[in-house]
Every structure is written in structure tokens, then in C-alpha cells.
């Protein structure tokens, strides 16, 4: 351990960002383990984990900006994660629909023409 002492406000800010981020990431993973079917499980990691990691990275930005020189480059990871999370969610949803995975019984299908969505080219 080699952490520098922070001034009071920064200490609280970094600590709360890290704790909130860690909680969100944990909740996302609990959701991944606990929700009943694949489409529902898809919701938890794409939203909560991304935000959780975003919180930790924001904490890291504040920490390094206060202790060392002004440092923004961790922001790149956050931006990248927020850009890519919907894309991987979309691809995995497509894969799940393509393989026709089991859904929980109370899933309602409200599509007017379900046959218009298959991905046969």
C-alpha cells in the first residue's frame, strides 16, 4: 500500500465514488447470477457494471488529479465502456434470439409481426 493522504474533501469524494461504484458493480453481478432468463440477465451487467466501473474510474481521476498532476486519461476507459456496452448487449441479444433460448413463461410478446425480425439474409 502506497497511498498518499488526501485533503478532506477529496478523501470523501474519492471514497464515496469508489464505494458507490463497487456497490453498483456488485449489484450487476448479483443480477447476472440471480435473474431468471437470458434476456433478463442481459440487463444487469450492461447497465450496472458499466456504471460501477465508471464510478471507480472517476474516483481514480480525482485521486490522481489531486495527488499528482492533472490527469484525465482514465476518462477514455469510461467513454469506451459506455460506447461499447450497448453494442455488445445488442449482439448478445441477437444471438440469444437467434438460438431461441428459453424465456420465463410470463414474458409477453407484443410484436405485431414477429416473423419480420429473423436475421436470415
Amino acid at each position: 500500500m502506497n497511498m498518499t493522504e488526501l485533503p478532506g474533501w477529496a478523501d470523501w469524494l474519492v471514497s464515496s465514488l469508489i464505494i458507490i461504484g463497487a456497490l453498483f458493480a456488485l449489484i450487476g453481478s448479483v443480477g447476472l447470477a440471480r435473474l431468471p432468463d437470458f434476456m433478463a440477465r442481459l440487463h444487469a451487467p450492461t447497465k450496472s457494471t458499466t456504471l460501477g466501473v465508471g464510478g471507480v474510474i472517476l474516483g481514480s481521476i480525482v485521486y490522481f488529479s489531486v495527488t499528482a498532476t492533472f490527469s484525465w486519461h482514465e476518462l477514455l476507459i469510461t467513454i469506451f465502456l459506455f460506447l461499447t456496452a450497448p453494442i455488445s448487449a445488442h449482439l448478445l441479444a441477437k444471438a440469444g434470439l437467434h438460438l431461441e433460448l428459453k424465456r420465463v413463461e410470463n414474458t409477453r410478446d407484443l410484436r405485431a409481426q414477429p416473423n419480420q425480425y429473423s436475421d436470415e439474409d
Binding site: M1, N2, M3, T4, V14, I18, G21, A22, A25, G28, S29, L32, F38, R41, L42, P45, T49, T50, G52, V53, V56, I57, G59, S60, Y63, T67, E74, I77, L81, S88, L92, A95, G96, L99, L101
Partner: peptide, 29 residues
């Protein structure tokens, strides 16, 4: 099913990335 496993792997890499960032804070580098 396979998509579940891919989703789990996806979450694993995001979580381990956060662990790396935390490790950086812990060692101050």
C-alpha cells in the same frame, strides 16, 4: 447456454479492469 457464458465473460473483463484501476490507486501509480 452459450450466450450466458459469453455474457459472464464480458462482465468478468469489465470487473477485472476495475480491479486493475483500484490496484493502481492502492499503489499510487
Amino acid at each position: 447456454d452459450l450466450p450466458d457464458r459469453i455474457l459472464a465473460l464480458d462482465t468478468i473483463y469489465i470487473n477485472s479492469l476495475a480491479l486493475l484501476v483500484l490496484f493502481g490507486i492502492w499503489h499510487g501509480t
